[in-house]
Design a protein around this nucleic acid. Sequence first.
RNA 1: GGGCGAUUAGCUCAGUUGGUUUAGAGCACUUGGUUUACACCCAAGGGGUCGGGGGUUCGACUCCCUCAUCGCCCA
Length: 870
Amino acid sequence: MEIASKYNPSASEDKWYKYWMDQKLFHSEPDEREPYTILMPPPNVTGVLHMGHMLNNTIQDILIRRARMMGKNACWVPGTDHASIATEAKVVNRLKERGIDKKDLTREEFLEHAYEWTDEYGGIILKQLQKMGASADWDRKYFTMDEDRSEGVIKSFVELYEKGLIYRGVRMVNWDPAALTALSDEEVIYKEQQGKLYYLRYKIEGSEEYVTIATTRPETILGDTAVCVHPDDERFTHLKGKKVIVPLVNRVIPIIQDEYVDMEFGTGCLKITPAHDVNDYEIGMKHNLKVIDIFNDNGTLSEAAELFVGEDRFEVRKSIIPTLEEAGNIVKIEDYNNKVGYSERTHVAIEPKLSAQWYLKMDEISKPALENVMNDTVQFHPAKFKNVFRHWMENVKDWCVSRQLYWGHQIPVYYLEDNTFVVAETKEKALEMAKEKSGNANLTIADLRQDDDVLDTWASSWLLPFTGFEKPEDLAYYYPTSDLVTGHDIIFFWVARMIIAGYEFKGELPFKNVYFTGMVRDKQRRKMSKSLGNSPDPLDLIDKYGADSVRIGMLFCSPAGGDLLFDESQPEQGRNFANKIWNAFRLVKGWEIDDTIEQPESAKQAIAWFDAKLDQTIETLDDHFSKYRISDALMTVYTVFWQEFSSWYLEAIKPAYQKPLDAATYKATCEFFDKMLRILHPFMPFLTEELWQALEERKEGESIMTVDMPTVSGADASLLDKFEMLKEAVGGVRNVRKGKNIPMKDALALNILSGDGFSDYFNPILTKLANLSELNMVNEKVEGAISFMVRTSEYFVPMDGLIDVEEEIKKLEKELAHQQGFLKGVMKKLGNERFVGSAPEAVVAKEKQKQADAEAKIKTLTESIANLKK
RNA sequence: GGGCGAUUAGCUCAGUUGGUUUAGAGCACUUGGUUUACACCCAAGGGGUCGGGGGUUCGACUCCCUCAUCGCCCA
């Protein structure tokens, strides 16, 4: 059979993905097996695959494929998120390009455009996930705004309202003047910004005196309703009870006192604009101040401002300065850095604004979630995120769930003519309630006005662990889900709220484990971004290196919770590994098999050893997976395949050039290969399927995806240490060859003076791998030979006196010095009575063993040096 | 300003409740090697006073304090 010398991923990827789909291998239905469920964090419906998705979904696919092979009923539920504000912003932009203004559209018309957009772009990302090999159950694909999900969202709102947990409140919110909607605190990003600090003086009423305040937002003086000083500030005690005049608008406002004021900052005198600053608002409430809202929703100045009406807030900040200057109110202007909040979605500066919104009370319902994360009922990996979580949960604020958008679940609140309202799942139900409430039996649906607002996107996605399952029997079987894999950046947006919802609505946790991924950054630790051009397209990488290579490339260095510094050398390393596996397969399949020849001893031993090695590897792998150390698990299979299997095992059994291999060894090797492919499969699904299918004749419908993961077989573990000694011996001979420039094809003789724990078990392999003409056990040192030590045994390669005595002595003395230094350290410990007295016995015994070994080596080395010096 | 975390080889990271030979891995680097699966390869090698200082202990990369630097979250 002729096999290409390089693996060609593109040829096999589409083929096997189609095969898996045709065979319905991703699909799960409840049965008697233990379920293993992952809810895929839904990407935005109009999104495209980026490196973050790639990392995230690779990890999920690894977990789900492994669980499937471990006999569980694995179900990975995919879907897309309507992403209300993000999608609406995109639709608004596209309409603008077509010359359409959102304002000119009715809600229905706008939604038509939005659906058109989602139909066009929606689901592209799911197709892209298939390219990377995602084994999700596509038959269960959901959309957060489809009928089933919407029903769940509305139901939950009504339920929470009826429990008294939802209320309407006028509060200071984060207002996005571009999207014209309120945002939750989590949707605001604070950025350091270079600005100015303006010192403005306000005339005191009935006096020629002034007070000076400092502000970063001079335009807001138009909304000032007080000036505030600290009660203990002696500089201002004489102003108590006086009033000042707001510049330009000449409004008379009181001077109040409050401990909130920082005496050190600015002039110690603070202007209060309750409508446009959260802290000012609170002070305003406390002191019963008037609230003057000087901004329109879009960030221009309103009639209430009296001046600059209709102009943009940032324009006014500039143009008000000369006006103030002219009026003699500017004292000085300083450079000042402060933090300004920006909308996560539209990137405009948010405006604190008073507004009526719907809130969900968080304090009570978040308690079970906090408790069950802290006691590890829900486990976080890595656990350090528990602290972050606790901090947020202990200071949780009520959740503003309403958004002034069209794209989303419209709030099920229906207003009557008199502005009282009812909350119901359907219009019909609402009408019934309204009739009862008003006592008017003649009301019709047309008399009810549904609230214009929609719900925050997260108010639908926090329910997904259960609304993700439509049939009750599915929900009963799959819920709670097993693992959640997501970025730590949405721990509050999503993870915390899902846990809250799980306990609130189901009385049970939504998932048992949360694996947090880091962010994918470039080598300079910069975030991946379009403008920097440092964000590779995962699909291009898949084209270039193959999906398996990109998958494992991402994982080589991706600790849980830590950022992944991506570089193209990583998929390249992945490709190299894929090729290594490919070529090992090519080697094995290329051998001619002869079932009449006897199995060599060396092969028998190599098989016994590798059996034990594989056993140990499976144990290590299980341990890594149990701790969610995915990178370590990958590195384990990487090393075992490349180092142990390819470089040691295959070399040990390899027949001489153009000689056949015995049938028994071939059979064992194919079994090993089969097992190696299985443990590799979750990481590299395509290549392993390709080779597994080629390893032997398979029946239609068979797949490596559904065979069992190898389990620990109880192999002889003592062989492992003996083999490590063999490796050292082979290395020793290689060093001799290198030092003397003796090519591999010239056979050498080797004599061994055995020490403690020596085993000759692997001598046949040693003979083969070191290319020895003879291998003898001796009772005394060999003259005229180059020597090296493995543990306490001494190995001699006779050189017919062709050795450089000086060099040999130097080499041995160096080793001697090292051993003596080591012994000194050991003796220092053992010489310390307090150590011997207080350390555990086992530790002391270990030190004594070290001492004995070191002394034996020193003795041998000293003698050898003396011999050479003779 | 408050909180959380990090600092170990050139880079990215392990190092599990303090004691497994005087700290490990991958990549990178240096040297040598190609008729015999793979140069997307094989073999060998160099490289770290575990951020600085102090403390606890018989013993500290590991625990405590402090300083420095960086990152993240929240205000």
